[in-house]
């Protein structure tokens, strides 16, 4: 059996925001069908890594590169990356006046969605009261995450990046969000490669609802540790991030 093909390859990535270097040589390979988890203290650069992969302005790559499906992402705009198959669930997406969630789901689906599929999505994520509202305008934490999941299920990216999917969400909503993430990552796609994911989490709480294959700890601008996600979380909860970086379960 051959190893699954790499989908995302991050090589020696250095990223600065303003004058500050946040990432200092990140190496990461996510293969088809794999779900990775990115742990780490606040301010460690987790969101920076995600936003750099997405292509948001303000994140300056000073060294290294990111390859997606073998293509160097340098110089590609956010929408081009999205159309190549990169999706992102934002931690705090902006409210957009006058644009309904329904519209955003439709543009994300780019013609692949019909009324029946939309109705299923509305039912699955309980979007009845949100679908015709301005997106994220006055949405609760749980509503915001469900809205993000709906857009991503419509977009069906090959690689989905989740930024703190459990933050600001109550327990009922975490289960719904977790189920949607699982569907997004494990969906059967006849004749197509399996989907992949990268989940950024501060607490690791979401892992009670989603299975992840590999965990990393981003610390001091580098991936300091790699291992089984649950073991890493246990270790961190017992000893904190500082110790984790040196611990025995690290396979790095």
């Amino acid at each position: 059996m051959t190893d699954p093909a790499p989908l995302l390859v991050v090589e020696d990535l250095h990223v600065s925001v303003g004058d500050r270097e946040i990432l200092r040589g990140v190496d990461l390979v996510i293969s088809e069908g794999e779900t990775h988890v990115l742990l780490g203290p606040n301010g460690g650069g987790k969101t920076t890594l995600l936003n750099t992969i997405v292509g948001l302005p303000g994140y300056r790559v000073t060294q290294g590169r990111i390859l997606f499906k073998g293509v160097d992402l340098a110089g590609l705009d956010i929408d081009e990356r999205a159309r190549m198959g990169i999706g992102v669930a934002f931690q705090r997406p902006p409210a957009v006046r006058g644009i309904k969630l329904r519209q955003l789901i439709e543009v994300a689906a780019d013609g692949r969605f019909d009324e029946a599929m939309l109705a299923d999505l509305v039912g699955e994520l309980s979007l009845e009261n949100m679908i015709d509202r301005d997106v994220n305008m006055g949405f609760s934490g749980g509503e915001m995450k469900r809205s993000e999941m709906a857009q991503l299920l419509a977009q069906a990216p090959d690689l989905t990046l989740f930024d703190e999917p459990e933050s600001g969400v109550d327990l009922d909503n975490i289960a719904v969000v977790g189920a949607a993430m699982t569907r997004l990552l494990k969906a059967e796609r006849a004749g197509m490669s399996k989907r992949s994911g990268l989940i950024v989490t501060h607490t690791g709480h979401i892992l009670e609802y989603v299975n992840a294959d590999i965990g990393h700890v981003l610390y001091g601008g580098r991936l300091a540790c790699r291992g089984n996600p649950r073991d890493l979380i246990d270790e961190i909860s017992r000893h904190g991030y500082d110790k984790c970086v040196e611990c025995a379960i690290c396979q790095r």
Partner: peptide, 26 residues
Amino acid sequence: AAEEIYYLMSRGVPKDEAVSMITRGF
């Protein structure tokens, strides 16, 4: 708002279309 434009772009909408959608919504 730039972040609104980027948000739409992250769903695959080209920049000029995103600007037009947001303006229409406004």
